[in-house]
Design a protein around this nucleic acid. Sequence first.
DNA 1: AAAATAGTGTCTCTTAGACACTATTCC
DNA 2: GGAATAGTGTCTAAGAGACACTATTTT
Lengths: 248, 248
Amino acid sequence: MSKTPQNQSASQVPGNFERPLTTVDVVIFAVLDDQLHVLLVKRNRDTGEPFPNRWALPGGFVDIEVDATLEACALRKLKEKTGVVSPYLEQLGSWGGKSRDARGWSATHAYFALIAIDAGIKPVSGANAVDAQWMPIAGSGVREPLAFDHKDILAAAVERLRGKVEYTSLPAFLLPKEFTLSELQRAYEIVLDRKLEKSAFRTRVLATDLVVEVPRFREGANRPAQLYKLRSQVKPVYFQRTFKPAGE
Amino acid sequence: MSKTPQNQSASQVPGNFERPLTTVDVVIFAVLDDQLHVLLVKRNRDTGEPFPNRWALPGGFVDIEVDATLEACALRKLKEKTGVVSPYLEQLGSWGGKSRDARGWSATHAYFALIAIDAGIKPVSGANAVDAQWMPIAGSGVREPLAFDHKDILAAAVERLRGKVEYTSLPAFLLPKEFTLSELQRAYEIVLDRKLEKSAFRTRVLATDLVVEVPRFREGANRPAQLYKLRSQVKPVYFQRTFKPAGE
DNA sequence: AAAATAGTGTCTCTTAGACACTATTCC
DNA sequence: GGAATAGTGTCTAAGAGACACTATTTT
């Protein structure tokens, strides 16, 4: 209490070793079979590490030799697992405390990513399936028990995603570069887990300049559908919110 | 690249010392003189630490002997500086990298807090003024240069606050327990830095059940005003958003 | 009565949702 | 023509903003 905030923990100055463990975990979402999925990895068994054989979010210790920043670390882990290099990536939050990891006081920096499953994605079937797998989201998590506090982290990610979908263009990042408005609507419906009204959806999407037409159509056993792409591949669009300015 | 995520950094397993420095910083907002302010502290000079004599956000190293969780650490720092024990406290995000602190790879967990300036607040005037001070927010920061990447953190906090004000009850946490609707509107206007229309504001606030009447009035040189309190002192209210469900 | 702020009522305009309608392709 | 999905038009209801109005206190 009498220490000043500037140096209240002498235990952490360089040369002393009582620093928390620092990890990064990534919640990677994708749509498969018309369902929202999250990528999980299976932890090793019999290596003396906590939670052997349990499913966990992909992640691990920050490597201070390799990772220039936390975000770079998250991108590295994402790329290692999926091959994706430019996903939608957003910081989710951090979880830290003395009891979340038996090895000591630890803090994890959690990110969440949205990717589209297409030709470029590293498959996780076959030989890989034993240690990495896409799991369907049920409610605010998955059926399997998870290591550490990853259940909380996943629930926070699902909640964040669902919340933001209400007023942003996030589901577009779950689709390939070009998509139809029906496909976009379907992505919204999958994330929100409820149906949306077609007319209102299209009006709103087109009104916000979220997408631009490309001169191509999706062909099928019916009327071809106009293809669109995101106006910006990087930044999500925020729909108009409330409390408009008032006159003086 | 060939290491697995589960143990890709052997440098961090207990017994080895290459762990990032871990800090917590708190962006504490309050309204003074009808203006939004943030609490800053002045860093020591001539102690060999980085950024001597610079203004910085209150914070510092996690003390793994004292702090059970990151949030507990943030609450401790807030209490030390202001005396406030039950503020509105929200995690803002984390900033980490190899070059933000000359002492080594470091990661900070940033929180933001909203408090009401009233009788219980530790004064920072007089003798304290040299090392802690309320600074007015101008634009998305303060006029003074800040230590580390605290300018970025503060800007993110201001942006988060302004963004959330559009659709939540956050400004209520900048007021004392009991307040009038005019005072609440003023708090919104201060944070948003623009005027709001009285009738629409009142309709909306009352429609959301954000506040409940208390059987008292604010007396003045005019018609007394009904006093209200928050329905919940802890959780903010989220106003209705868009994309309502559609029929099947 | 004047000043000052609290609080309400009414009108308009925008937008979302409901829902039915038209359009264009394949078979 | 029928099936299937794309895409549009119209009506209604709710809510925000503009703005003027009434209400209640002190001086």
